[in-house]
Write a protein that binds this DNA or RNA. Sequence first.
RNA 1: GGCGAGGUAGCUCAGCUGGUUAGAGCGCAGGAUUCAUAAUCCUGAGGUCGAGAGUUCAAGUCUCUCUCUCGCUACCA
Length: 687
Amino acid sequence: MSEQPARTLVTSALPYANGPIHIGHIAGAYLPADIYVRYLRSRKRDVVWVCGSDEHGAAITLRARKEETTPRAIVDRYHEEMQEAFRGLDIAFDHYDRTSSEEHHAFAQEFFLELLKKGAFTEETRQQFYDPVEKQFLADRYIQGGCPKCGHDGAYGDQCEKCGSALSPEELIEPKSTLSGATPEWRETTLWYLPMDRHEDWLRTYLEEGKLDGEDHHDAAAWKSHVLGQCRSWIDGGLQSRAMTRDLDWGVPVPVEGADGKVLYVWLDAPLGYITATRNWAAKKGVDWTPYWQDRDTQLVHFIGKDNIVFHCIIFPILLKEHGDYLLPHNVPANEFMNLEGDKISTSRNWAVWAKDYVEDFDGRSDEMRYVLASIMPEQKDAEFTWLDFQSRVNNELADVLGNFVNRVFVLTGKFHGGKVPGASGQWTAVDQALLDLMSTTPDAVGTAIERYRFREALQHAMGLVRAGNKYLTEEEPWKVAKTNPERAADILHLALQVTANAAILLAPFLPKTASKLSEALGTAGLPWDAAGAALVTEGQPLGTLPILFQKITDEQVEEQQSKLGPELEGMRDVEPEKGETSFDAFQDMDLRVAEVLAAEKVKGADKLLQLTVRTGYDERTVVSGIAEHFSPEEVVGRKVVLLANLAPRKIRGVVSQGMVLMASTEDGGLRFVTPDEGAEPGDIIR
RNA sequence: GGCGAGGUAGCUCAGCUGGUUAGAGCGCAGGAUUCAUAAUCCUGAGGUCGAGAGUUCAAGUCUCUCUCUCGCUACCA
């Protein structure tokens, strides 16, 4: 790998076309990539940035059924909406594609076949649920039933959303197909698996040392520690086989005879979308796409959020290497998560700042959001966005430092030099020289930080030049000097203008709108990055008119935005949807009783479990309950509770649990006992 | 329980391969100034660098133990 790659291919995580984009997404994978790419473009490097909608997967079909529409309609809607959000924040991909395109299907199939031919997969036949009414195999998410863990009656085959536990479909109590409501049957199906354990050795070398096939591949030290840490954790834990196909009808069909009703697993399908997108971009431009994915002088960078690390650093590299013709990532600068006003961002609770809403509420003010997000980007650890912080950064830094500096320079030039760039004598004082020095070193400081994916630091450096400009004006006082020494005053303003023009270039990756307004007004539009560091504006150049760059964010705006967070409906909660209809008989099957907790102790080796001894009035029994994180043993002894008494006994962590204690799970993420009213005694039947 | 990442000024965070009095921005106090969006500039207060032990001539920076937060994972209501 040479110091400077011949070209760079940048990707941002394909957003899932199942919901709108929020600032967490932007700060995680799109804004950093946008800054990085704008910088490289400004340096006139060969760079291509691709992205696209990830439009397959069970969640989308499930949602389509729920909304009584088609998967196509869902993905079409979000494909458009997401692009609108990106455009509104000036996130400027070279190409934005979608995985449901014909080209992608064809390419993904071709890629799959190649892997098949190379023996990358193992074929395994397993029992799987089949819906006899809809005549299809059921993906895990299409099966609903009682959760074996918490008893919650709407658990999915892969996960119970109530208790968060990972499940496999056969564990469900009374499983039902969510498609037809029918009871599914066991049938054999054949799926292709990726045996990842085969790849542990070279992956370790690739990640830890940056070496591939015995050659230097990338600088492993340049990777973020949390990215490497996660990968190490996965590999050390032993990599498992993972199914690369699914029985589903929405996705890229498996191109093998007899594989009707099977599609590629979205996690095989989606990253290949990067390649398809590049091919489509190249076709559009009439250039050859292959160097971007196959030439060793290309640098491949994936921008993602931390939830995607394992796929981009382990699974996708395995696929690429097995294929053999493609480059592996040179860096995956994953960001951590962005929290919001003290809580994690949550789509279902509407605890999010939606990109689309921001663009509507703050029309034309994309730079403000970009600036704030770049300032607090979760580069090494989770970060937090608050509207008060947004206000203070916009007002104190953008408006007061940058906006005001620019305004001072323009007003002074207007007043003392008729709005034209004054000439300079070339007689620089020590103070001038210090500023000139800073001006000449800042581009490199900013650029180096960007190339190291340290965007906050880069922005600090760029703003540092502006701060120095303010200091310079305040201390040199050209408005005073002009009265006694007009030549000196001209020098000062000339230099201040050079600083402004430099700032326009350096800030452009972060604040594209502002930067172009500035460089237009200064007559320096279109100058590349490498021009920065020196004099840019020329004597006599008339300045354009410049509006106030940044309006202050008012307290009212802050309050308005804060009040938008959370559930939208007055008095109504946005909770998980009601389950499908049940029958009286099914209810009758449950034997609910009042019981009293006699004793409680923690189950050793488990964080969440309490072992309870309860009195039912007719016996005493042991119940294991996953409430240890919410209640101490002392707190629960003596309580009257509601017990599901006839639940099949189950061995949990070595202890046989005979029944289940009912709890209400509350909005704050806690649990509350369901307690019978005064007078109810152990053994009382609940019906 | 296992693994990973964090715990640094009131707030948001930097501190690379250990080395002079631990930094930035905001906030706060005092002052200067008026060209400018009541903006700007200077000065100052403020930190036992989560706790404890160890290695070293020297530790925020390395090792161990403990503790708290976040994430993945296991057990799981």
